[in-house]
Write a protein that binds this DNA or RNA. Structure first.
Lengths: 110, 110
DNA sequence: GAATTATGTTGCAAACATACGACATATTTT
DNA sequence: AAAATATGTCGTATGTTTGCAACATAATTC
Protein backbone atom coordinates (compact mmCIF):
# COMPACT_ATOMS: atom_id res chain seq x y z
CA UNK A 1 0.00 0.00 0.00
CA UNK A 2 1.65 3.17 -1.15
CA UNK A 3 0.52 6.70 -0.51
CA UNK A 4 0.19 9.81 -2.63
CA UNK A 5 0.75 7.96 -5.87
CA UNK A 6 0.72 11.02 -8.08
CA UNK A 7 3.19 9.38 -10.47
CA UNK A 8 0.43 7.31 -12.08
CA UNK A 9 -1.20 10.38 -13.61
CA UNK A 10 -0.56 12.34 -16.79
CA UNK A 11 2.04 15.07 -16.61
CA UNK A 12 -0.56 17.71 -17.48
CA UNK A 13 -2.59 16.79 -14.41
CA UNK A 14 0.43 16.45 -12.12
CA UNK A 15 1.80 19.86 -13.12
CA UNK A 16 -1.52 21.61 -12.79
CA UNK A 17 -2.21 19.93 -9.45
CA UNK A 18 1.07 21.30 -8.14
CA UNK A 19 0.18 24.82 -9.26
CA UNK A 20 -3.28 24.51 -7.71
CA UNK A 21 -1.72 23.28 -4.47
CA UNK A 22 0.43 26.42 -4.29
CA UNK A 23 -2.69 28.52 -4.86
CA UNK A 24 -4.74 26.57 -2.31
CA UNK A 25 -3.96 28.79 0.69
CA UNK A 26 -5.48 32.26 1.12
CA UNK A 27 -2.21 33.65 2.50
CA UNK A 28 -0.38 32.78 -0.71
CA UNK A 29 -3.17 34.22 -2.86
CA UNK A 30 -3.00 37.40 -0.77
CA UNK A 31 0.77 37.61 -1.12
CA UNK A 32 0.62 37.23 -4.90
CA UNK A 33 -2.12 39.85 -5.12
CA UNK A 34 -0.10 42.22 -2.94
CA UNK A 35 3.02 41.81 -5.06
CA UNK A 36 0.95 42.41 -8.19
CA UNK A 37 -0.58 45.58 -6.69
CA UNK A 38 2.57 47.29 -5.47
CA UNK A 39 4.18 47.87 -8.83
CA UNK A 40 7.55 48.39 -7.19
CA UNK A 41 9.01 45.21 -5.83
CA UNK A 42 8.93 45.72 -2.11
CA UNK A 43 10.75 43.86 0.60
CA UNK A 44 9.62 41.09 2.82
CA UNK A 45 7.72 43.20 5.28
CA UNK A 46 4.91 41.59 3.38
CA UNK A 47 4.48 40.19 6.86
CA UNK A 48 2.83 43.45 7.86
CA UNK A 49 0.20 43.00 5.15
CA UNK A 50 -0.63 39.43 6.12
CA UNK A 51 -2.21 38.61 9.49
CA UNK A 52 0.18 35.81 10.31
CA UNK A 53 3.51 35.66 12.07
CA UNK A 54 6.64 36.61 10.18
CA UNK A 55 7.84 33.01 10.34
CA UNK A 56 4.68 31.69 8.75
CA UNK A 57 4.72 34.34 6.03
CA UNK A 58 8.34 33.48 5.35
CA UNK A 59 7.36 29.86 4.83
CA UNK A 60 4.56 30.80 2.44
CA UNK A 61 7.09 32.92 0.54
CA UNK A 62 9.32 29.87 0.36
CA UNK A 63 6.52 27.81 -1.19
CA UNK A 64 5.88 30.54 -3.77
CA UNK A 65 9.61 30.89 -4.45
CA UNK A 66 10.21 27.15 -4.90
CA UNK A 67 7.25 26.90 -7.25
CA UNK A 68 8.64 29.78 -9.30
CA UNK A 69 5.82 32.26 -8.71
CA UNK A 70 8.10 34.85 -7.13
CA UNK A 71 11.76 35.81 -7.04
CA UNK A 72 13.78 37.69 -4.44
CA UNK A 73 16.72 40.00 -5.03
CA UNK A 74 19.04 40.69 -2.14
CA UNK A 75 19.60 44.40 -1.46
CA UNK A 76 21.74 44.78 1.61
CA UNK A 77 19.83 43.39 4.56
CA UNK A 78 16.58 43.54 2.63
CA UNK A 79 15.22 41.21 0.01
CA UNK A 80 13.12 42.67 -2.74
CA UNK A 81 10.45 40.20 -3.65
CA UNK A 82 8.49 40.34 -6.85
CA UNK A 83 6.44 38.17 -9.14
CA UNK A 84 8.26 36.13 -11.77
CA UNK A 85 6.47 37.38 -14.89
CA UNK A 86 7.56 34.54 -17.16
CA UNK A 87 6.59 31.79 -14.72
CA UNK A 88 3.31 33.44 -13.74
CA UNK A 89 2.28 33.87 -17.36
CA UNK A 90 3.20 30.25 -18.04
CA UNK A 91 1.09 29.05 -15.12
CA UNK A 92 -1.83 31.17 -16.29
CA UNK A 93 -1.65 29.55 -19.72
CA UNK A 94 -1.58 26.05 -18.20
CA UNK A 95 -4.61 26.83 -16.04
CA UNK A 96 -6.58 28.44 -18.86
CA UNK A 97 -5.73 25.60 -21.21
CA UNK A 98 -7.10 23.06 -18.72
CA UNK A 99 -10.21 25.07 -17.90
CA UNK A 100 -11.01 25.38 -21.60
CA UNK A 101 -11.08 21.60 -21.75
CA UNK A 102 -13.59 21.45 -18.90
CA UNK A 103 -16.41 22.65 -21.09
CA UNK A 104 -19.77 21.33 -20.02
CA UNK A 105 -22.26 23.42 -21.93
CA UNK A 106 -23.46 20.37 -23.87
CA UNK A 107 -23.67 17.98 -20.96
CA UNK A 108 -26.34 17.20 -18.38
CA UNK A 109 -29.22 19.16 -19.83
CA UNK A 110 -32.22 17.91 -17.95
CA UNK B 1 -1.50 29.33 19.07
CA UNK B 2 -4.23 28.42 16.64
CA UNK B 3 -3.92 26.54 13.41
CA UNK B 4 -5.23 26.97 9.91
CA UNK B 5 -6.54 30.44 10.56
CA UNK B 6 -8.13 30.95 7.18
CA UNK B 7 -10.82 33.17 8.70
CA UNK B 8 -8.44 36.11 8.86
CA UNK B 9 -8.34 36.42 5.08
CA UNK B 10 -10.61 38.12 2.55
CA UNK B 11 -13.51 36.09 1.28
CA UNK B 12 -12.20 36.28 -2.28
CA UNK B 13 -9.00 34.54 -1.21
CA UNK B 14 -10.74 32.00 1.01
CA UNK B 15 -13.18 31.00 -1.74
CA UNK B 16 -10.52 30.72 -4.39
CA UNK B 17 -8.22 28.78 -2.06
CA UNK B 18 -11.00 26.23 -1.55
CA UNK B 19 -11.48 25.82 -5.30
CA UNK B 20 -7.73 25.48 -5.81
CA UNK B 21 -7.60 22.86 -3.07
CA UNK B 22 -10.20 20.78 -4.89
CA UNK B 23 -8.16 21.09 -8.07
CA UNK B 24 -4.89 20.28 -6.31
CA UNK B 25 -4.97 16.53 -6.91
CA UNK B 26 -4.28 14.95 -10.32
CA UNK B 27 -6.99 12.33 -9.79
CA UNK B 28 -9.65 15.02 -9.45
CA UNK B 29 -8.34 16.91 -12.48
CA UNK B 30 -8.45 13.64 -14.44
CA UNK B 31 -12.00 12.91 -13.29
CA UNK B 32 -13.23 16.35 -14.33
CA UNK B 33 -11.50 16.03 -17.69
CA UNK B 34 -13.05 12.59 -18.21
CA UNK B 35 -16.54 13.83 -17.39
CA UNK B 36 -16.04 16.75 -19.76
CA UNK B 37 -14.88 14.41 -22.55
CA UNK B 38 -17.64 11.79 -22.43
CA UNK B 39 -20.47 14.02 -23.51
CA UNK B 40 -22.99 11.57 -22.12
CA UNK B 41 -23.02 11.48 -18.33
CA UNK B 42 -21.67 8.05 -17.57
CA UNK B 43 -21.77 6.08 -14.36
CA UNK B 44 -19.24 5.78 -11.62
CA UNK B 45 -17.11 3.16 -13.22
CA UNK B 46 -14.93 6.20 -13.58
CA UNK B 47 -12.86 3.96 -11.32
CA UNK B 48 -11.79 2.03 -14.42
CA UNK B 49 -10.40 5.20 -15.96
CA UNK B 50 -8.41 6.19 -12.89
CA UNK B 51 -5.50 4.07 -11.63
CA UNK B 52 -6.63 4.07 -8.03
CA UNK B 53 -8.89 1.80 -6.02
CA UNK B 54 -12.64 2.25 -6.28
CA UNK B 55 -12.75 3.42 -2.67
CA UNK B 56 -10.23 6.15 -3.32
CA UNK B 57 -11.95 7.28 -6.51
CA UNK B 58 -15.23 7.37 -4.60
CA UNK B 59 -13.68 9.72 -2.08
CA UNK B 60 -12.34 12.00 -4.78
CA UNK B 61 -15.85 12.05 -6.27
CA UNK B 62 -17.15 13.04 -2.85
CA UNK B 63 -14.76 15.99 -2.70
CA UNK B 64 -15.84 17.12 -6.16
CA UNK B 65 -19.50 16.62 -5.27
CA UNK B 66 -19.32 18.54 -1.98
CA UNK B 67 -17.53 21.41 -3.71
CA UNK B 68 -20.25 21.51 -6.36
CA UNK B 69 -18.10 20.59 -9.35
CA UNK B 70 -20.17 17.49 -10.17
CA UNK B 71 -23.63 16.09 -9.59
CA UNK B 72 -24.90 12.51 -9.53
CA UNK B 73 -28.29 11.23 -10.61
CA UNK B 74 -29.40 7.87 -9.31
CA UNK B 75 -30.54 5.44 -12.03
CA UNK B 76 -31.31 2.09 -10.46
CA UNK B 77 -28.12 0.73 -8.97
CA UNK B 78 -26.02 3.09 -11.01
CA UNK B 79 -25.29 6.74 -10.47
CA UNK B 80 -24.84 8.94 -13.47
CA UNK B 81 -22.21 11.52 -12.69
CA UNK B 82 -21.75 14.68 -14.65
CA UNK B 83 -20.28 18.11 -14.36
CA UNK B 84 -22.38 20.86 -12.82
CA UNK B 85 -22.28 23.41 -15.64
CA UNK B 86 -23.44 26.38 -13.56
CA UNK B 87 -20.98 25.77 -10.73
CA UNK B 88 -18.08 24.99 -13.04
CA UNK B 89 -18.64 28.16 -15.05
CA UNK B 90 -18.85 30.14 -11.83
CA UNK B 91 -15.56 28.70 -10.59
CA UNK B 92 -13.92 29.45 -13.92
CA UNK B 93 -14.99 33.10 -13.63
CA UNK B 94 -13.61 33.36 -10.09
CA UNK B 95 -10.29 31.89 -11.18
CA UNK B 96 -10.00 34.07 -14.28
CA UNK B 97 -10.95 37.16 -12.31
CA UNK B 98 -8.17 36.50 -9.81
CA UNK B 99 -5.57 35.65 -12.44
CA UNK B 100 -6.35 38.88 -14.28
CA UNK B 101 -5.41 40.73 -11.10
CA UNK B 102 -2.05 38.96 -10.97
CA UNK B 103 -0.66 40.98 -13.83
CA UNK B 104 3.07 41.47 -13.62
CA UNK B 105 4.05 42.76 -17.05
CA UNK B 106 5.15 46.10 -15.53
CA UNK B 107 7.05 44.75 -12.58
CA UNK B 108 10.58 43.51 -12.06
CA UNK B 109 12.09 44.56 -15.33
CA UNK B 110 15.82 44.26 -14.77
C1' DG C 1 -35.45 -14.50 -1.08
C1' DA C 2 -30.60 -15.44 -2.14
C1' DA C 3 -26.85 -13.96 -5.23
C1' DT C 4 -25.06 -10.29 -7.86
C1' DT C 5 -23.96 -5.62 -8.95
C1' DA C 6 -23.07 -0.68 -8.09
C1' DT C 7 -22.07 2.23 -4.87
C1' DG C 8 -21.23 4.81 -0.43
C1' DT C 9 -19.15 4.88 4.47
C1' DT C 10 -15.97 3.77 8.20
C1' DG C 11 -11.61 3.13 10.32
C1' DC C 12 -6.95 3.28 10.14
C1' DA C 13 -2.00 4.29 8.84
C1' DA C 14 1.13 7.11 6.40
C1' DA C 15 2.22 11.43 4.45
C1' DC C 16 1.81 16.22 4.10
C1' DA C 17 0.53 21.09 5.47
C1' DT C 18 0.12 24.87 8.80
C1' DA C 19 1.55 27.94 12.49
C1' DC C 20 4.85 29.81 15.45
C1' DG C 21 8.65 30.44 18.95
C1' DA C 22 13.46 30.08 19.25
C1' DC C 23 17.65 30.26 17.06
C1' DA C 24 20.99 31.40 13.25
C1' DT C 25 22.95 34.51 9.84
C1' DA C 26 24.20 38.51 7.62
C1' DT C 27 24.15 43.59 6.84
C1' DT C 28 23.94 48.20 8.50
C1' DT C 29 24.30 51.63 12.10
C1' DT C 30 26.27 53.51 16.18
C1' DA D 1 32.73 45.66 18.00
C1' DA D 2 28.24 46.00 19.94
C1' DA D 3 23.39 46.95 18.81
C1' DA D 4 19.86 47.04 15.63
C1' DT D 5 17.58 45.35 11.56
C1' DA D 6 16.01 42.03 8.02
C1' DT D 7 15.62 37.67 7.04
C1' DG D 8 15.92 32.49 6.83
C1' DT D 9 15.86 27.75 9.18
C1' DC D 10 14.75 24.30 12.79
C1' DG D 11 11.92 21.96 15.97
C1' DT D 12 7.56 20.92 17.45
C1' DA D 13 2.54 20.69 17.97
C1' DT D 14 -1.45 20.18 15.55
C1' DG D 15 -4.52 19.58 11.66
C1' DT D 16 -5.57 17.74 6.95
C1' DT D 17 -5.15 14.68 2.98
C1' DT D 18 -4.46 10.40 0.78
C1' DG D 19 -5.17 5.49 -0.03
C1' DC D 20 -7.25 1.26 0.85
C1' DA D 21 -9.53 -2.90 2.98
C1' DA D 22 -13.56 -4.09 5.22
C1' DC D 23 -18.16 -3.29 5.89
C1' DA D 24 -22.84 -1.37 4.83
C1' DT D 25 -26.69 -0.35 1.72
C1' DA D 26 -29.69 -0.60 -2.00
C1' DA D 27 -31.37 -2.18 -6.69
C1' DT D 28 -31.49 -6.03 -9.98
C1' DT D 29 -31.34 -10.72 -11.39
C1' DC D 30 -31.89 -15.49 -10.69
Amino acid sequence: MTYHRTEVFDEQFRDLAKIARVLSHPARLAILKYLADVKACISGDISNEIPLSRTTVSQHLQVLREAGFIQGQIDGVKINYCLNPVAVNGFKLLIENYLNQINCDNCCKE
